[in-house]
């Protein structure tokens, strides 16, 4: 079954006097449990596609379907509800809320969802342990390294078991060791929980873990490689 289906997506940005096509008639379908890397040089359209799938950006045209629901015509409130329940996000930077501790950041989405405190506490402890941050739950983001912060963001993205995790350049600010650990964590979560991952990256190490590699250029998909097939 499709986790994501995009039909003829178009998005144009205006930069100075120029129109830049961030998405140029993009069609893509991603099945549940897949581990997809979107690869493109800067400005190639991968972040725009990721944002379109996450309902963060408004498109010029096209349809986006997530978990069987068409989201491009949803209201802001409906999109917020969808993101809250179905989608986990990991961004390149500024991923955490600085005034909350690591545990509170992990619990944030669950708290907004209305999960009871006891359940939140158990789940957040378990997930922090799983991402290798057991015992660091009381630290604020400013007291953690970049890698640890990204792990907290990953923990937050997956703790409420979303069907889809969208990650935008998750390793861009990390050293190679931490990047490796993070990608291994993604792969493990994909295997063990069956979570669908869509990762925008130009990091070769991340691409190496992908089951499917989608290459983009100038807002178009120019190559789509399913590694399992080959």
């Amino acid at each position: 079954m499709s986790a994501v289906r995009c039909i003829d997506l178009c998005k144009t940005y205006r930069q100075g006097d120029q129109d830049i096509k961030a998405l140029d008639h993009v069609d893509i379908e991603i099945v549940e449990g897949d581990f997809v890397c979107l690869s493109a040089p800067s400005g190639g359209g991968k972040t725009t596609l990721l944002n379109a799938i996450g309902g963060l950006d408004i498109l010029d045209s096209g349809e986006v379907w997530v978990a069987g629901q068409r989201i491009d015509c949803m209201s802001k409130g409906e999109l917020a509800g969808l993101r809250l329940k179905q989608i986990g996000f990991v961004f390149q930077a500024y991923n955490l809320i600085p005034v909350l501790t690591a545990r509170e950041n992990v619990e944030f989405v669950m708290q907004v969802q209305g999960v009871p405190a006891d359940e939140r506490g158990c789940k957040s402890e378990a997930i922090l342990e799983e991402v290798g941050l057991g015992g660091l739950g009381d630290r604020r983001p400013a007291e953690m390294s970049g890698g640890q912060q990204q792990r907290v963001a990953v923990a937050r993205a997956i703790v409420s078991r979303p069907t889809l995790v969208l990650a935008d350049e998750p390793t861009a600010n990390l050293d190679s060791k931490t990047s490796g650990e993070l990608i291994e964590l993604f792969a493990e979560l994909n295997e063990t929980h069956g979570t669908t991952f869509v990762i925008a990256t130009h990091d070769q190490r991340v691409m190496a873990y992908a089951k499917r590699l989608v290459k983009m250029l100038d807002g178009r998909i120019v190559d789509d490689i399913d590694k399992r097939a080959g």
Binding site: G54, A80, F91, Y94, F108, V109
Partner: peptide, 13 residues
């Protein structure tokens, strides 16, 4: 940016 993050995570406006 934080406000954007919270909105992206599903917090309602």
């Amino acid at each position: 940016r934080e406000i954007g993050l919270m909105l992206a995570l599903g917090m309602r406006p």
